[in-house]
Write a protein that binds this DNA or RNA. Structure first.
Lengths: 240, 240
DNA sequence: CTCAACAGGTCAACGCTGTTGTCATAAGGT
DNA sequence: ACCTTATGACAACAGCGTTGACCTGTTGAG
């Protein structure tokens, strides 16, 4: 088969579909995001997307080689949107905290897309910008290269992983979600101290803490550990 | 439609399939796990599972209402297996590290089940046992109750989140997964220092580090931060 | 020892999915 | 104004989860 997809730069003939829509990579991604948000992750299929766009499903294969390509484009768009609203101040810890919380919030704002795209490495422009920026913050703070990459990796994966996890629970169908929320009060808080001493002793804290996301706390722990390593590095510098 | 699924307790007539197999919930779950292990996550479909069992696909609907039900049964089995092989030694840091790595490995071994079950609070026996055990480790180490719950929450969510994240990437269809692995070498490592100085400077480390899971590193960071907090608490005890 | 009830296996069909080979046509460069 | 070809449309394929209807072997009661 001859290559079906034409690189965006080479596209010139903007021929409308039967229903009068002029397709483009941007329009397709935007429509996909809208579909996901409005009707759930399951609503995203090539056929439904085609219908929503007013085009034949097979037309999309002129823009994306397969559905996976489309997912990567969606993921990159999400990264771009988040990055655009972030302006670092120079304080590495504050900057990373801010970016982490922003990415997490961004994921929660598009739960279904976040779940689908969190685990992809896109290699696209927005992602590259993000990598460059975060590495810049860490190296600027004085982390040696190897350590900077290690912290970067843990930071990014932690943020994406929690984003997907928390998105997944907010995306649960209504009743199931309510049931989950009450388990801590209804089940755990009632366990007798005799059989479950540790749960019983901390029940109050569990009920208060567990229904909320632990991402902020986990992020803080990561930043604390990173700072400790930084001072350790600076006290006794390592050869790279 | 009258209810198709009969509760396991009520099952009595063990009628063999045409190919002579006697079905059961246990056999179905075991076969599903075997399928996933032997032929990858994509190999698990109702039809393939039926074929592997020597039964008509629709027979499975006598045991599970839908595929999700089956996935949850598989997940429950996994939790059980993981807990059963963990025996704490008394060293809180080593014990948490061991449990975290075990849970993560368990998730990776059965990616599909992990992705589906990571964000659910079941409130079932195995889960309760795990909560009690982890809280016991932390409180035994000397963490005050509130801090113990905070650490527990971050620890568990981080483990589940990374388990799901890493599972999701291993569950990618073959070609997509290979593509991801090569992005760091093919795209990132080739960016010029002029436009992307930080990526260029750390390219070597990125290529080496990024294709691997960052969970072990993230876990270590969490444990380090926890230890720091513990010594801080012990130096200046807080009123609870 | 017989026999009716019914649990549980089977069959066929529905509508959905991603994907591709082929064809038609209008846009753009010349 | 023409010719090329980019790009949209169509039809078809195999595979998916799921369900309603049907058939049959097992079972416990009489």
């Amino acid at each position: 088969m001859t290559e079906r997809v034409v690189p965006p730069a080479a596209r010139r003939r903007r021929r409308p579909t039967k229903q009068g829509v002029v397709l483009s990579e941007e329009l397709i991604v935007a429509t996909a995001l809208r579909l996901i948000e409005e009707h759930g992750a399951d609503a995203l299929s090539v056929r439904r997307l085609g219908r929503a766009l007013g085009a034949d499903p097979s037309s999309l294969y002129r823009y994306f080689r397969h559905t996976d390509d489309l997912m990567l484009a969606i993921a990159d768009e999400l990264i771009g949107r988040t990055l655009r609203t972030w302006n670092p101040t120079g304080d590495w810890r504050a900057d990373l905290r801010e970016l982490g919380l922003r990415m997490h919030a961004g994921a929660l704002a598009h739960p279904r897309a976040a779940v689908l795209s969190s685990y992809r490495v896109t290699g696209r422009v927005h992602e590259i910008e993000a990598v460059e920026a975060i590495l810049g913050v860490l190296r600027g703070a004085g982390f040696p290269d190897a350590e900077a990459v290690r912290i970067y990796h843990a930071f990014v994966d932690q943020t994406l992983a929690f984003g997907a996890l928390d998105s997944a629970s907010t995306a649960l169908p209504g009743p199931a979600r309510a049931a989950e929320a009450s388990v801590w009060r209804a089940t755990y808080a009632r366990l007798p101290a005799g059989t479950h001493p540790n749960i019983a002793a901390t029940a109050r804290h569990l009920v208060a803490d567990m229904p909320r996301s632990s991402y902020p706390a986990a992020l803080e722990l990561l930043l604390e550990a990173a700072e400790a390593r930084l001072t350790a590095c600076q006290r006794r510098p390592v050869a790279e």
